[in-house]
Design a protein around this nucleic acid. Structure first.
Length: 422
RNA sequence: GCGGGUGUAGCUCAGUUGGUUAGAGCGCCAGUUUGUGGCACUGGAGGUCGCCGGUUCAAAACCGGUCACUCGCCCCA
């Protein structure tokens, strides 16, 4: 137990949890397809610059939270910590800026070197969409509506609140940032230690500090929305009007920010109260500056990502797929015939479990527990008479059926019929 | 990276102020039933008490370290 563990922050997905994950991913896939997003995938690792360039080489994220390593050729590679940078890189490398707009859906594993918590693993899984090209606020509205539709399909939307804010365009942001720094510098002695360093490194993040002293100081801090220029105000008004028209409810959250420079305008999160401190279940925003930062032409973009693990915790139960029919041998004399029959029934599209060990009683018991509905019982006696016993494991009824190993269609039909019966 | 909590059977957990052979329920295996599951009864397997060290005549228990899990902080692209 102590010796053979999965590496820290990783977990096996055994069939029952895998079923929950698949349910989440398929809901996201269906919701995004509904809006015309097409599934694609980028590599699980990239040259480190893809992830470090938009963030700055010395930031905490790059130096402490990335899984980076040199390969045998000396290239610095990083396991992808999120997929937006990879998708934008793929757009640039593939020359797809000629085919805008692009609407992409993805699902897959991501990696961050962090202290694990509930719903926060070192290897985790995300689903997400990216809408590349348009700078229209209706694009923002569309991806948010898509996210809401996805959460609704999981039955999670009712427990979530959509938090919405505008960061404004680059001009608005830098005006606000300057004002905020000026204000906070006059309280620098009273700020928490964490926020003192944030003031130098990433002042906007002080807005969502959890320190009560910081929150006190923030009461009278300049407000982001007062620094939005007309174009930024118009974008936000356009977005909220579209959400209202679509019946997507939202709350204005002036403290919801993104620290990185390539973000602009819309920032949003769907937050649930049922998951402790890790309450954000789906989050995203507009990142018009990212493509240029990665060395491509300026291309507007907006998207979101959602953590599969966290959403899977909100899914009540999901039953792993398992066969409904088992072929059970009564004695070794029917081993080969049973194997042959199993293959023939699979040809007919029936999922067959063929247990190989244990007495007949054991096999029936296990089949019943595994949720198998019908057992085909075959032994030397049946083989000699060209029959099988068809046993309904739910009500215990049993009937004899003819066995013809040259043509099992009749038996397949009888099984299909008993599977349909209540 | 920082702080709190928790590590005993496959799972959920008992285990007295330190005391000699570490328990229960569920699950698993076998039998009662030599070819028919669920119920019942009977029996059985399964434990380096997370790991290393220390205190002690004696440690699952006390102390130190370490690892893992968990909650919060930092971070959250």
């Amino acid at each position: 137990m102590s010796r053979l563990q999965p590496a820290r922050g990783t977990a096996d997905l055994l069939p029952d949890s895998m079923a929950k994950h698949r349910l989440v991913i398929e809901a996201a896939r269906a919701a995004s397809a509904c809006y015309g997003f097409q599934e694609m995938a980028t590599p699980i690792f990239e040259f480190s610059e893809v992830f470090s360039r938009p963030l700055g080489e010395s930031s905490d994220i790059v130096t402490k939270e990335n899984y980076s390593f040199a390969d045998r050729g000396g290239e610095m590679l990083t396991l992808r910590p999120e997929n937006t940078a990879g998708v934008v890189r793929a757009m640039i490398s593939g020359g797809l800026t000629q085919s805008l707009p692009l609407k992409y859906f993805y699902a897959g594993p991501m990696f961050r070197y962090e202290r694990p918590q509930k719903g926060r693993m070192r290897q985790f899984h995300q689903v997400g969409i990216e809408y590349l090209g348009p700078d229209d606020a209706l694009a923002d509205a569309e991806i948010i509506a898509c996210g809401a539709r996805f959460l609704a399909a999981l039955g999670a939307l009712d427990d979530c609140e959509l938090h919405l804010n505008s960061l404004g365009d680059a001009q608005s942001r830098s005006a606000y940032r300057a004002a905020l720094i000026t204000y906070l510098e006059s309280f620098v002695d009273q700020l928490s230690d964490d926020s003192k360093t944030r003031l130098a490194v990433n002042p906007l993040r002080i807005l969502d500090s959890k320190d009560t002293g910081d929150r006190q100081i923030l009461q009278n801090a300049p407000q982001l929305q007062d620094y939005l220029n007309d174009a930024s105000k118009a974008h936000f008004a356009d977005l909220t009007a579209a959400l209202d028209a679509a019946g997507v409810s939202w709350v204005f959250d002036p403290l919801l920010v993104r620290g990185l420079d390539y973000y602009c305008h819309t920032a949003f999160e769907f937050v649930t109260t049922s998951l402790g401190a890790q309450g954000t279940v789906l989050g995203g925003g507009r990142y018009d500056g990212l493509a240029e930062m990665l060395g491509g032409p300026p291309v507007a973009g907006v998207g979101w990502a959602a953590g599969v693990e966290r959403l899977a915790m909100l899914v009540e139960t999901a039953k792993a797929n398992s066969p409904k029919v088992a072929i059970i041998t009564a004695d070794d004399g029917a081993r080969l015939a049973a194997f042959q029959l199993a293959e023939q029934l699979r040809d007919s599209g029936i999922e067959i479990d063929l247990p190989t060990s244990g007495a007949i009683g054991k096999k029936l018991k296990k089949a019943g527990k595994a949720g198998i509905c019908v057992a085909v019982i075959i032994g030397s006696h049946e083989l000699a008479n060209n029959t099988v016993q068809l046993r309904n494991l739910e009500d215990g009824s049993q009937q004899e059926q003819p066995l013809d190993l040259a043509d099992s269609n009749g038996l397949a039909a009888a099984i299909a019929k008993s599977l349909l019966a209540p």
